[in-house]
Nucleic acid binder design. Structure first.
Length: 378
DNA sequence: ATGTCC
């Protein structure tokens, strides 16, 4: 424990270490958000960074009100992990990239059902189903680097001889449409959860949560199909959502904004596209509002990246990482914004959570191929 | 974040 938990003011917990850089603006947003009506507890994860008015990488607890704007537009955004049948030792990176093909076009409901008859498409909303999206979203083939707890790795079916697949994506346009409509009517104010409007939002929010989960499933299935591989889903956890929860004996609403739940089994915490990713076991503690970091966290603002990197690195250089992995990213702006240099080291984030006794690492993976976007912009 | 804005 020791210095990894800070309580700068009543009700606010920071999971950090002296070595970790926390951006001042993010801490400012944390305090501003924590003082909104009915927010009784806040917890900042070690990957906290500034967002649009609210910090990304934090959890907030209320007893009566819900704050849709705090969750933001990508309701249900999350991470999934699959064990694939692709042999690690026989891996041919160039061939895999070729086989992956282009995943940028949405899949229609009929394409989905003919490819995977066991999936029931949630087709009341077709918002770019089966596509990854932009920003920090990605799909990534990985190889097992280190197993820390062999018993659990074996139990869930992690296999070092075969590649893993990670998917980071969300509800695409659906969550944004729900938030837009909500904001036009109610602005950023908190809404009584039990009111008609509150219940209506939560119903739509839950649909977006399900849609995001299905979208990750479709992305993974699509990749496995293209690679002529089999796969088994090992985890799927959202890090952008509201849920009913009981905190310090009080029942209410837990808002996670870029924070993974510590209450739904094993959690994947991805590093940057040039860094390791971890599978961790959450420990049962209310210290950080039953929440964990959702990634490495940005170190540089998106707008600062190109200026800092374009004179030192070409786009071609950024498409290869220190792990020898390849990043498929035809968007020449995005590849700078998503460069590993723009993110904290994942080890610093994991260390903070280990020291705070929030997690136990189970396994570590390194990237092989990252898919962001293949289609060049016109 | 965006069947996104330039």
């Amino acid at each position: 424990m020791g210095n990894s938990i800070q309580q700068p003011s009543a009700g606010i917990t920071l999971i950090t270490t002296p070595e970790l850089w926390l951006e001042g603006e993010a801490i400012k947003q944390l305090h501003t958000t924590a003082t909104l009506p009915d927010i009784s507890y806040a917890a900042a994860m070690p990957d906290i960074h500034p967002g649009r008015g609210y910090p990304v990488g934090a959890a907030f607890f209320t007893t009566q009100l819900i704050y849709p704007a705090l969750i933001g537009g990508d309701i249900g955004c999350g991470m999934s992990l699959w064990q694939t049948s692709l042999k690690t030792h026989a891996m041919n990176q160039a061939k895999l990239i070729k086989q992956l093909g282009n995943l940028d076009q949405p899949l229609s409901a009929s394409e989905c059902t003919s490819l995977w008859p066991d999936i029931q498409p949630l087709q009341q909303h077709n918002y770019a189903s089966g596509t990854i999206g932009g920003g920090n979203h990605f799909a990534e083939l990985q190889m097992l680097d280190t197993i820390y707890v062999a018993e659990i790795a074996e139990q869930i079916g992690l296999n070092k001889q075969h590649l893993q697949l990670m998917v980071h994506s969300g509800s695409r346009g659906l969550g944004g449409a729900i938030l837009d409509k909500h904001i036009r009517q109610f602005g950023h104010q908190g809404l009584i959860a039990d009111s008609e409007a509150g219940k209506s939002y939560l119903t739509q929010h839950n649909q977006a949560l399900a849609y995001a989960q299905q979208n990750r499933e479709l992305i993974a299935r699509r990749i496995l199909t293209n690679l002529r591989a089999q796969g088994q889903k090992l985890a799927d956890i959202s890090h952008n959502f509201i849920e009913a929860a009981c905190i310090h004996g009080e029942s209410g609403w837990l808002h996670r904004k870029g924070a993974a739940p510590a209450t739904q089994g094993l959690v994947v915490i991805p590093g940057s596209r040039g860094d390791y990713s971890y599978l961790v076991q959450p420990l049962d503690t209310p210290t950080a509002l039953y929440s964990l970091a959702h990634g490495a966290g940005r170190k540089w603002q998106r707008s600062a990246c190109k200026g800092r990197l374009s004179r030192r690195y070409t786009v071609e250089q950024l498409s290869r990482t220190v792990h020898g992995s390849r990043v498929i990213c035809a968007d020449r702006e995005l590849i700078y914004e998503e460069a590993p240099q723009a993110y904290k080291s994942i080890d610093s984030v994991i260390t903070a959570m280990v020291q705070a006794e929030l997690i136990r690492p189970i396994a570590r993976f390194k990237p092989v191929i990252t898919y962001k976007v293949k289609t060049e912009k016109k």
